[in-house]
């Protein structure tokens, strides 16, 4: 983990939903690059032509459709959901075996060989991203890889490459600047907030929208990095261990003192059987 470091130069996605046409090229490109199975769907699973119903072990990214009205006029909005590649990922922080980790380049990647399949990452992710291979007897976790293998080789992620309009890819600092510029240049087009700039302590996916975020289905998420919430407790572990262990030891040393002294005396003196000792104790009962 790039603990406490700056994420300015990690790679980030700027997804401008005002420019997204809902073409779902990204969704298909992702499946192609990652060779994910097509899901069996029926009709449409949500508003508009939305499908499949959720991100899943087979679907790392999905375009959500939102059919609604504003001032009596139709609106049709689209937004691509995917792993947010958090600066300080909750998923990675809770993984007992460190199978998930934030790379220096930006993507939060997953080492399948380490994973024990406990699904804590799924519980922890504030965006509901990691998915599980429910169909398998020995399942693993699956999620967007940020196309780490591509960016390691100088390419952009498959989805960003396929997208005709909405996705820009670059360093996080550049993307934030670009987003700020867009908001400044066309204030009537944009809702003045960059989702992901502060959410969960900042993420590697940044969104611009036309409408207030909650209307589009963005979850409000705390701006404090999630790992810090558990760390504030976990960091006390050694302290607690030593305190509890130490004080109980001290206490027992103290409580056993009388007995010990007695035994020492006995060793020196008459040598009574332990049974007798115990009986004595029993007799002391009030």
């Amino acid at each position: 983990m790039n603990a406490g470091g700056s994420y300015e130069n990690t790679k980030a996605f700027l997804i401008d939903t005002t420019k997204c046409t809902g073409c779902r090229g990204c969704q298909v490109a992702c499946k192609q690059w990652n060779q994910l199975e097509g899901e069996k769907t029926h009709f449409f699973s949500g508003e508009g032509y939305q499908n499949p119903p959720q991100m899943s072990e087979y679907t790392f990214t999905r375009v959500k459709f939102k059919d609604y009205k504003k001032n009596g006029q139709n609106e049709f909005a689209f937004y691509k959901e995917m792993c947010m590649h958090c600066n300080e990922p909750a998923c990675a922080s809770v993984c007992p075996v460190g199978a998930l980790k934030k790379t220096a380049e930006g993507p939060v990647v997953y080492e399948a060989d380490k994973c024990i399949g406990c699904r804590f990452c799924m519980m922890a992710c504030p965006f509901g991203v990691p998915k599980y291979e429910w169909s398998k007897a020995f399942p693993l976790v699956r999620k967007c890889t940020g196309c780490y293998s591509r960016i390691k080789n100088g390419l952009h992620p498959a989805c960003a490459t396929a997208c005709p309009t909405a996705i820009t890819y670059g360093t996080r600092a550049e993307m934030i600047k670009e987003a700020e510029n867009r908001i400044k240049n066309r204030p009537q087009r944009y809702y003045p907030k960059i989702y992901g700039q502060h959410e969960a302590g900042g993420t590697g996916v940044l969104y611009l929208t036309h409408q207030p975020l909650d209307e589009l289905g963005f979850k409000p998420v705390t701006s404090r990095p999630l790992p810090s919430y558990t760390w504030q407790a976990l960091r006390m572990v050694p302290g607690i261990f030593l305190t509890v262990g130490g004080s109980l030891s001290a206490l027992s040393w103290f409580t056993h003192r009388k007995e010990r002294i007695k035994r020492e005396e006995e060793m020196l003196g008459k040598g009574r059987s332990p049974e007798a000792e115990a009986h004595e104790d029993r007799e002391e009962r009030p």
Partner: peptide, 21 residues
């Protein structure tokens, strides 16, 4: 967007069938 024309090209592709089944 999700389908192409008479459909041979896309209705045989699971990734697109998934989108508009």
């Amino acid at each position: 967007t999700e389908h192409w024309q008479a459909g041979a090209m896309t209705r045989s592709l699971p990734w697109l069938v998934e989108l508009v089944p």
